[in-house]
Design a protein around this nucleic acid. Structure first.
Length: 573
DNA sequence: GCCGTTTTCGGCCCGACTGTTTTCAGTCG
């Protein structure tokens, strides 16, 4: 059983216990464990198989360890089955409706026989909800709206769409006179791969003016609320954007609060409590004296708590606070550390720019090198390179290299066939500086076959990089089924770098995978898989993933200067 | 149910909003 499935069950248990009216602390314990398991960089099944302990996972104690073990070993959990049988099936879906909490859900079920979203809709329409004791027209109306919004709302949107939107908003609002800061907090600032909504914060001399400019932005579809310091709007696709203006001296505490994650903040407050401090979005209060200290910057805020500054990408309550206490947080890789891109396409296969276009764009980014890795001739891939065309391409790469003045690596992105062989003859593979291998077909193979297939490819003496290792497309295609730990080991044994593919639709490896790979000592590389010159800008998305994986510059191959990358390519695997 | 330079027992994050009350429960982030 996968971690995601285990986490889902514990979250479900928390919901059911909430409906049951259990004490909140027990409910929180299950929620915390669910989140911790969801974010775990290793599969629990693997940890157990290797005789490891689950008690190291924060929030997992004796009872939850036992239940997790039962789930992994039998695929079922007695406790969960019994708990579920106490309620009508589907009742927890009611909790997904904003405004409906456990108390309301239970009353809907017991007093109105409402068990599903459809039942709820009917009960709202015929006025039964409004007729409940301590409920009224207004409450029913609010639930009706929330339900409509829930249906309309698209899934969480990829960070690749959200970030450019935020930057548009920033660029307009920062021109309003008197604006000092405008920044997105929340999951976007933590660089999660998808975001549910956008929380923006700022400081300004005249907040009202900024709010007015905000609600008049061209991308705003509907204004939900507008006050003097706060406004909420919907933009295209139903995405909600909040803007909140605050006093300058409070900016640090507020930014910290709204950046989250919730789990990080809870852990932080629990710790502060032991020091006699109480944390809130307004600052840090000394419980005994009642004195509140405010903070203009997050750096000062963390410092006051006796902690190293914790970068937003690490704020997930996965051990960052303990490390910050000891001053042991790693210095994370920055976009400015990147010295080149080792995965790019041109019009020689399915790309949209010439070799020169790509080289010029790479040079403009300050890169020392760029690899041209067009597709091999394999089935399903447009305009793959033949032996003859590759020869011509190499000649052109060399000419452009001379002309533009940037080191260009000749290369190929070669398809890994279903049996693990490479879709290019030896005479091609041996001619290029760098080979990127990737799965593009037969993605539904079973786990054993897929794992063997990829390992076989990595064992080829020519393969330098395994690209987008899990082949997922965010919101579109599930990852392939593969023993990911075996892939890490094979990468290590065969001196193959694993790619963090920076295309916003891929982000593959994802954060927790990259975390574990790094921990095992695997060399990672961030590649944009660019198909046109401006795609080189995707690099920042890959860097975001790497930072969430706690990567330092030295963990990433393409932060290395040219000579070291050349040494890597000559490593004689 | 978890956890410990207060504790193996007794605690457990913080504040705001809303609607329906007549002092607050429920929900949210």
């Amino acid at each position: 059983m996968k971690n995601t499935a285990i986490a889902k069950i514990f979250q479900d248990i928390a919901d059911l216990l909430e409906l049951k009216g259990e004490i909140v602390f027990k409910i929180r314990a299950y929620q915390r464990a669910a989140r911790a398991i969801e974010h775990l960089p290793r599969e629990i099944a693997v940890i157990l198989r290797e005789g490891g302990s689950l008690r190291d996972i924060p929030g997992v104690g004796e009872a939850i360890e036992k239940k997790t073990t039962e789930l992994v070993n039998t695929g079922k959990l007695q406790y969960y089955e019994e708990l579920r049988s106490e309620f009508p099936p589907g009742i927890t879906t009611l909790l997904e409706v904003p405004g409906v909490g456990p108390k309301t859900a239970m009353r809907l079920t017991t007093e109105l026989g409402v068990n599903t979203i459809e039942d709820l809709e009917k009960a709202l329409l015929d006025g039964r909800v409004a007729g409940l004791f301590r409920m009224g027209e207004k409450t029913a109306e609010n639930i009706k709206h929330a339900l409509a919004a829930l249906r309309r709302k698209d899934q969480r949107i990829p960070i690749g769409e959200a970030l450019p939107l935020v930057e548009q908003i920033q660029s307009v609002l920062s021109t309003v006179p008197g604006v000092k800061n405008i920044i997105a907090a929340g999951s976007l600032r933590r660089f999660r791969e998808t975001v549910g909504d956008i929380d923006m914060m700022g400081t300004a001399d005249d907040p009202e003016k900024v709010i007015q400019a905000f609600v008049r932005l061209p991308m705003v579809g509907q204004v939900l609320a507008q006050g003097t310091t706060k406004a909420t709007v919907l933009v295209a696709g139903g995405l909600q954007v909040d803007l909140r203006l605050v006093e300058h001296q409070n900016f640090g505490s507020l930014l910290q609060y709204f950046t989250g994650s919730k789990q990080h903040n809870i852990a932080l407050r629990t710790r502060a409590q032991r020091q006699g401090l109480s944390l809130s979005e307004y600052g840090i209060t000394d419980v005994r004296s009642g004195q509140i200290e405010t903070f203009a910057t997050e750096e000062d805020y963390y410092k006051r708590l006796g902690l190293q500054y914790i970068p937003p990408e690490l704020r997930e309550d996965t051990g960052e606070i303990e490390k910050a206490e000891k001053g042991q947080l790693p210095g994370l890789v920055e976009l400015s550390d990147i010295k080149g891109d080792l995965h790019a396409h041109t019009e020689w296969s399915d790309g949209n720019g010439s070799i020169e276009d790509m080289a010029v764009a790479a040079k403009a980014r300050g890169y020392q090198y760029l690899a041209i890795t067009d597709h091999s001739a394999g089935r399903g891939i447009a305009h793959g390179l033949s032996v003859e065309r590759l020869k011509q391409q190499i000649a052109e790469v060399r000419a452009v290299e001379e002309k533009v003045g940037i080191r260009l690596f000749t290369g190929m992105e070669v398809d890994i066939r279903s049996d693990g062989t490479l879709d290019a003859p030896e005479e091609m593979l041996s001619q290029v500086d760098l080979v990127v291998a990737a799965v593009h077909s037969a993605m539904s193979q079973d786990q054993d076959k897929m794992t063997q297939r990829m390992i076989k490819a990595m064992e080829s003496p020519h393969v330098d990089i395994l690209a987008h290792p899990t082949c997922r497309l965010l919101g579109e295609r599930e990852p392939i089924s593969v023993d990911i730990e075996a892939i890490y080991r094979a990468a290590l044994n065969n001196y193959t770098a694993l790619e963090i593919n920076a295309m916003p639709s891929r982000l593959d490896l994802k954060d927790i995978h990259a975390y574990r790979a790094r921990e095992m000592g695997v060399k990672l590389v961030i590649g944009t898989d660019s198909h046109r010159p401006e795609h080189l800008g995707y690099m920042r998305f890959g860097v975001g993933v790497a930072r969430r994986a706690w990567c330092r510059a030295e963990d990433i191959l393409n932060t290395m200067p040219l000579v070291e990358v050349e040494a890597f390519l000559r490593r004689g695997k």
